[in-house]
């Protein structure tokens, strides 16, 4: 075990490098990931926006956090897909027959997911700026936003790892992300929860996306964040820990 542990970070670096090459050699996947959220953003701002009452004069500011979460949720389906494809191929057996810490294979995918999702987030924020998004937030608030999004991505990437490891087909590997993509619609991401019927509202107010969206929105608009940020962090870390545990279990079962 000793040598594998000693080289954990160097092995993880090699795996990350490999995964990043895969991503940069299929830039179309990043474009695909950003197109849908940008489409939603255009649709909601220019088509539905006029009819939606959020109490703000800048609807782009209001919906951007939810759009970012949708982008990440669809981005991680590629993580599941890439991992699934890797498991099908002989290269994994080669890695596993080598004296490396086996979990570095998963870490490579998870960390590269962080990088590729960061790229899509930046692209979407750039489009939002063109559409009139403005933020008075200072550097610290932006860092906090980046931190929350990073944790959210990490948490969902580990969920993606479970899907990639346990899926039977390629389609199955990606399908798990659909409900996650859908969650922002039943949250305060697009409309205030007050407008929803009571049952839906109860769900919306207590699911993770709402607290994450509220925390990011408050940070970006320079408002006090209150409790939302702690609830958001608790959700992200909670999901991450649980998903990591099940991902590792699924992995041990496979190898």
């Amino acid at each position: 075990m000793e040598t594998a542990k000693k080289h954990f970070f160097s092995d993880m670096g090699v795996m990350l490098e490999r995964s990043m090459r895969h991503i940069f050699r299929s830039m179309d996947t990043i474009i695909t990931v950003t197109i849908m959220p940008i489409g939603f953003m255009l649709l909601f701002v220019y088509v539905f926006g006029g009819a939606i009452q959020t109490g703000t004069d800048n609807y782009v500011n209001y919906l951007l956090p939810g759009i970012l979460l949708i982008a990440i949720a669809s981005g991680i389906s590629y993580t599941a897909y890439r991992l699934f494809m890797d498991m099908q191929r002989g290269i994994f057996e080669r890695f596993h027959s080598m004296p490396i810490a086996r979990s570095t294979v998963l870490w490579g995918h998870v960390l590269s997911s962080l990088v590729s999702n960061a790229i899509s987030v930046v692209v979407i924020i750039a489009v939002a700026l063109i559409m009139g998004f403005r933020s008075p937030a200072g550097i610290l608030s932006w860092l906090a936003v980046a931190g929350i999004l990073a944790l959210f991505t990490l948490a969902l990437s580990w969920v993606a790892v479970i899907a990639g490891l346990s899926a039977k087909t390629v389609d199955g590997a990606g399908a798990f992300s659909y409900p996650i993509i859908f969650l922002p619609f039943i949250s305060s991401a697009f409309v205030p929860t007050e407008s929803m019927p009571s049952g839906v509202r109860a769900f919306a107010e207590n699911q993770p996306v709402t607290s994450i969206v509220e925390a990011i929105r408050a940070l970006l608009s320079g408002q006090p964040v209150g409790n939302d940020i702690w609830i958001a962090l608790a959700w992200c870390i909670g999901i991450m820990v649980v998903a990591y545990f099940f991902a590792m279990r699924a992995y041990k079962k496979r190898v």
């Binding site: 090459r21 299929s26 191929r89 002989g90 290269i91 057996e93 027959s97 080598m98």
Partner: peptide, 17 residues
């Protein structure tokens, strides 16, 4: 694992690299 290496039945190469 330190003293062996494996060429599996199905090519163990990374197609994208």
């Amino acid at each position: 694992r330190q003293s062996i290496s494996l060429t599996g039945q199905f090519a163990a190469v990374d197609e994208i690299l």
